[in-house]
Write a protein that binds this DNA or RNA. Structure first.
Ligand SMILES: [Zn+2]
Ligand SMILES: [Zn+2]
Ligand SMILES: [Zn+2]
Ligand SMILES: [Zn+2]
Lengths: 167, 167
DNA sequence: CTTGCGGTGTTATAACATATCATTTAGACG
DNA sequence: CGTCTAAATGATATGTTATAACACCGCAAG
């Protein structure tokens, strides 16, 4: 119900002060919405908070469950609408491989995300994919294809899971 | 029901001799299965043929429909099993963005596919993503993440669709 | 023959996503 | 302040994609 307070919760695959990262990201989102005239409604705010709390990719129905528990929308469309808003405005990304959503690690930075997805613990780390995009754009140009959006996702195993495997 | 015979049917976004390309790919798959001791059963063979005929990304249920029409399996698992076999052995790829499958353009070549997906006509062209993989692997190494599989998909518009747009 | 394994048939259900229409709310405007 | 409008939400229903689970069959090794 309330954010986890352990100061070294893993995010992506690194440890960090989780309580601050949730608060900061939420505050930043709030500020940016105000600035850009976007409506950061309770459902949307809470949906982002849910993604941030876990710092994992979460399915829409998983988010929905938590919204329901607090009376913020009871049906699938509520969750999808909130998540669509977050994705459309760069507060979160959709991870195609998992049919799931994850809070953005570089909000407000105008970037092309790339994801590292651990197939054991399902955690997701976000990095950037600019070189991949450049390569693809030039490859595409040969056939007259115009690239609008690029999606880069790597599947593998994170350090922690590889470690625990060999134990 | 029977393969399209138009000699300049588009594949990916280029034109080519489609009738031969279906036959050739099927024969090559057959040969490779024989060589590697894989069982190229009627359902699997026909599923690949269906993907090749269209040379588009097809949903599992779309493939299923066509299999059903020929009495080759009536339920979803039949299609998923056949498609899983094709993907596992490199005869086809899964396009995550579309939750769909497409016959491989470089069978037997041990490659990392990248896809160009036209958001208008839904056609898919396959190209290669080696540089993207290298970049990702090195980015991942910093956090101890081991990349096993890389997925690169670009969304945009093909030459034909851009053309017809401006008309 | 018989035993095991891979492939298939079949049922049921899980998981993900959207169309549609009614209702409410927030803000713009006169 | 009222009233209009557009955006957001509520609610119902349904569509789409994917898998779990178990039964059965055929083939080939032992
Ligand atoms: Zn991001
Ligand atoms: Zn892990
Ligand atoms: Zn391929
Ligand atoms: Zn097109």
């Amino acid at each position: 119900m309330e954010p986890q307070r352990h100061p070294t919760e893993p995010v992506g695959f690194a440890r960090h002060d989780h309580s601050h990262c949730v608060e900061d990201a939420l505050a930043a989102a709030e500020a940016r919405c105000l600035y850009e005239g976007l409506r950061f409604t309770p459902v949307r705010r809470r949906a982002l908070e849910i993604l941030l709390e876990r710092h994992r990719a979460m399915g829409a129905y998983e988010v929905l469950e938590r919204l329901q528990a607090e009376g913020l929308g009871a049906q699938p469309p509520a969750a999808y609408r909130a998540l669509d808003f977050l994705v459309a405005n760069g507060f979160a990304h959709r991870v195609e491989r998992l049919n799931a959503f994850v809070a953005c690690n570089h909000p407000g930075e105008d970037h092309i995300p790339a994801f590292l997805i651990c197939r054991s613990c399902n955690r997701v780390a976000e990095t950037v994919a600019l070189p991949a995009r450049a390569q693809l754009v030039s490859a595409a140009a040969a056939s007259g294809f115009e690239v609008e959006r690029v999606l880069v996702e790597a599947e593998g195993r994170c350090a922690a899971c590889r470690q625990s495997d060999s134990e």
